[in-house]
Design a protein around this nucleic acid. Sequence first.
DNA 1: GTTTGACAGTTCTATTTTAGAACTATAGCC
DNA 2: GGCTATAGTTCTAAAATAGAACTGTCAAAC
Lengths: 154, 154
Amino acid sequence: MKWDTLDEEPCSLSRTIAVVGDRWTLLILRECFLRVRRFEGFQSSLQITRHLLSERLKKLVRFGILRRAPYSEAPKRYEYILTQKGLDLYPIIMAMVHWGDTHMGDERGRPLLHEHKTCGKLFDPVMVCSECGERLHAKQVHVHAGPGRRQAVG
Amino acid sequence: MKWDTLDEEPCSLSRTIAVVGDRWTLLILRECFLRVRRFEGFQSSLQITRHLLSERLKKLVRFGILRRAPYSEAPKRYEYILTQKGLDLYPIIMAMVHWGDTHMGDERGRPLLHEHKTCGKLFDPVMVCSECGERLHAKQVHVHAGPGRRQAVG
DNA sequence: GTTTGACAGTTCTATTTTAGAACTATAGCC
DNA sequence: GGCTATAGTTCTAAAATAGAACTGTCAAAC
């Protein structure tokens, strides 16, 4: 599998991994969800090298996940803002945070707690079926080939 | 941020990325969910190099996501089976597949369709609040520091 | 009017990871 | 004894990442 054309594979997981499947991208996006928008902000909170940060931000803009918006004219400065496509990554990040909370925790408890403003309570994210609303479990899902599948690729 | 101790960071996202945040791990796990269990099976369906596959399987066993179970005594051969910890990664993979379906699709339609055996319908995974059952949106979530957080790390 | 500092990058070398191919080892079958 | 299947290991080359230093613009301080 060639890494640079992974986004053209007939597999939605591969296509997503092409965008967020590296060491840093999801951590950068976490900062975006925590309202960080500027180069120096990402750099100082993540300790990522400036070179890599620059590359990743370009890639995220190229894929339409962030947009680069000017916030100062002289000198020209830009900040990076989540698009709707980027906001839609939220369930991925929350699913990963929840798995980490459940399986990678230590004796000190959770690093972060999440409050649902709508109901006012601390919550966990739960994945349910869009049709019946029941909790999803891998063993209750059957996979069919769809129209976009070619050959023996998942 | 040091990649080899990422699983000790006071951040559940970092800890999860330490386990599944590389080029291949999630693709290997996708195959596990599609009932692949053996070295040659992973290798031929993913086109991953044998060296990397071997490394990744060892890592997944080390983290308790797969267990290595003998299926033949002479010669000794093993297969790799998802543990509960591994099965719990399902929402992450489904969230990524769903995002890929939504934002990275082409004109041919979805590569795979998912049927919920419980209700018999084709579905999409939806993330909801464990407390009120409403759909989650990033803007309706407020983040608090939890007991396991130290310093200014998310 | 020169210096300092903030911000947003770019450029360079060194190290680590990954890719690609070939090789090893065990055992069954002909 | 030779062929095949399975599950790896070992090697070199290429690519990605780490780490540090450098560039350019402008505002404010001296």
